[in-house]
Amino acid sequence: MVSAKDEMLMKCMKVWMTRFNTEDLKFLEDTFWMVSFNFSVDTISSTEVTTVNGETTDRLMEYFKIGKLSSGKTESTINQYIRVVHQLCDFCHKEINMITTDDVLSFMVKYKIQNNVKGSTMDIKRKYLSSVFSYLYKHKKIADNPMSIVEPVKYKKCIKVPLKDEEIELLKINTTNSRDLAIIHFFLDTGVRVSELCGINLEDVDFKNYTCKVLGKGNKERTVAFSGKTAMRLNEYLKQRKDINMNGTYCTYAPNTPLFASRKGHPTRLCKTAIESMVRKLGIISGVTRVHPHLFRATFATRLAERDTDIGVIAKLLGHADLESVNRYVLIDQTKIEATIRQKGFCS
């Protein structure tokens, strides 16, 4: 008979397999048994609150998904909202229509402690939950909105420190294949989100004018530009693809062929998790352990600001309608601020 601890490990391994290689999985399995040695695990069969099978939650989440898809939200974004709802329901062992404000507050506090996550992460979860419950309450699918009096999570808002030139060079030097090198160059040249990069098709790229169409949040399309050096890196990578016929700078391919694909067997579109994993591993190899895909975006924005690019232009290139959102990406050097003050004559 399979024990509850064995069952728990099997479920963890099923999730881990989508993200880690065989060596990492062995390490995680060994660590699990080592850490859990002095702990017992029991399958929840009954609790003081209602144990649920999830049917009501699934039905309401399907209603929410259809509604948001019809209003232009992308499926990947909607799935992030739904994932947080399931985290809350699993934590409380309740269907979504039975969740109370106290349940939400308990989840917000305990989840943060148990999973050691940042306040900013919990505030994002709060926003997702607020969006879902508000939508269901507005459409009279639930009797009350438990999020109506849940306040925003207070946390210190830190501007991401952009990558230094030497860190960028270390990442490039330690990149072992043409695809990953092209991805690094593309991130730095365009400042696209990782989800946006995943969705780019070859037909979206104009190699003659070095531009690319990107589908951002809210299904808003924008055009980004890249350098000739990045174009060369893309060319080197695409020449190795089995699903593309290259003839000089001209290539033929099937409709909806992804710009960046997996390298295993028949090329398939790279997913967000795969790119994040690649960047994380590259950072470890390069000694730039703080790197992640979003940091390329901050580096892109800061470099534009350092060249005195208008903040409205930066916002447009990043795909932001709100200029205030740009501030969290841009870090202006203190010496430049002091020089500007002296130049304007604000200090003697």
Score class of each variant (00 low, 15 high):
220 K>Y: 14
225 A>V: 13
265 G>M: 02
186 F>A: 06
276 E>I: 00
212 C>T: 05
225 A>H: 06
183 I>K: 01
187 F>V: 10
209 N>V: 13
277 S>V: 09
210 Y>N: 15
224 V>W: 01
247 N>H: 10
218 G>Q: 06
240 Q>M: 14
196 E>Y: 08
220 K>G: 07
184 I>M: 03
267 P>N: 00
272 K>N: 15
230 T>Y: 10
269 R>D: 04
223 T>A: 02
220 K>P: 13
268 T>K: 14
240 Q>D: 13
183 I>N: 05
231 A>C: 11
243 D>Y: 11
191 G>T: 12
186 F>P: 03
190 T>R: 05
256 N>T: 08
262 S>H: 04
230 T>S: 11
221 E>M: 14
225 A>P: 09
258 P>M: 07
191 G>Q: 04
248 G>K: 05
229 K>W: 08
237 Y>E: 08
264 K>N: 12
221 E>S: 13
242 K>P: 14
269 R>G: 09
219 N>H: 14
270 L>M: 14
257 T>K: 04
214 V>L: 05
235 N>F: 02
278 M>P: 00
276 E>G: 08
212 C>R: 01
195 S>I: 09
231 A>V: 00
200 I>V: 15
232 M>V: 14
257 T>P: 12
188 L>W: 03
248 G>Q: 05
279 V>I: 15
229 K>Q: 12
220 K>F: 09
198 C>P: 07
247 N>E: 02
202 L>Y: 13
201 N>L: 10
269 R>E: 10
260 F>D: 14
227 S>L: 00
190 T>L: 12
228 G>Y: 10
246 M>H: 00
252 T>I: 10
189 D>L: 04
213 K>R: 13
213 K>A: 06
241 R>L: 03
259 L>F: 09
272 K>C: 10
264 K>L: 11
218 G>M: 01
215 L>H: 03
239 K>T: 13
270 L>K: 00
246 M>N: 02
186 F>H: 03
234 L>Y: 06
184 I>C: 01
181 L>S: 03
265 G>C: 03
265 G>R: 05
196 E>P: 13
236 E>L: 04
196 E>W: 12
258 P>I: 08
211 T>C: 06
222 R>A: 11
195 S>Q: 14
266 H>P: 07
185 H>S: 10
192 V>Y: 00
215 L>W: 05
248 G>S: 01
181 L>H: 05
248 G>V: 03
251 C>L: 02
270 L>F: 02
189 D>G: 08
199 G>Q: 12
206 D>F: 12
205 V>T: 04
263 R>K: 09
232 M>P: 00
197 L>Q: 02
257 T>R: 07
278 M>W: 00
243 D>S: 11
204 D>N: 15
219 N>T: 13
210 Y>V: 04
210 Y>I: 04
265 G>A: 08
240 Q>E: 15
257 T>W: 04
234 L>R: 03
200 I>A: 04
260 F>N: 11
277 S>A: 11
183 I>E: 03
194 V>K: 01
